[in-house]
């Protein structure tokens, strides 16, 4: 067991480069193609772990995954840790409360989407 763990940890930097990735991995991590090789290797390994499950995600989950990768990768390790803690804490609160928050956030997102839809002010667009 230990051997196997240290084996994965010792994966050489070369095998983490964008060019060395397989087609499945590249598809999953496509939004990061430009910055992949600049990311710390710890982060790349972590992302590769999540990418393993990409093929089994539902279409909407795949879309979310793609939309969020870039932002996620730009956070500092501290911010990512804080986010993980929050996510876990969120999933520990009673289901009822959790659903209330989910509902509120969904409503907010809907309003935001509506707003950005008409954020180009028609009155001032006249040429």
């Amino acid at each position: 067991m230990l051997l196997c763990i240290s084996g994965t940890n010792a994966a050489s930097a070369a095998s983490l480069s964008w060019r060395a990735l397989g087609p499945d991995q590249r598809e999953a991590l496509a939004p990061l193609d430009q910055q992949w090789d600049t990311l710390p290797s710890v982060q790349r390994k972590r992302l590769l772990e999540t990418a393993k499950r990409y093929p089994r995600l539902s279409p909407i989950q795949k879309q979310r995954y793609h939309n969020r990768l870039l932002k996620w990768s730009k956070l500092t390790p501290e911010q990512r840790n804080a986010a993980r803690e929050k996510y876990r804490a969120f999933n520990k609160i009673p289901v009822k409360q959790r659903e209330e928050v989910r509902k509120m956030v969904r409503e907010q997102e809907a309003r935001k989407a509506e707003d950005s839809g008409n954020s180009a002010p028609p009155a001032f667009q006249v040429r």
Partner: peptide
Amino acid sequence: LFQRILQNTIRDYYRRQKVRSAWVSLFSGL
């Protein structure tokens, strides 16, 4: 254009704050 954008940005901030305060009351320690 700038006035419109500025006011929208302020309103966006209010919305984020609203969700955030619900959030804080849920688990303020974090």
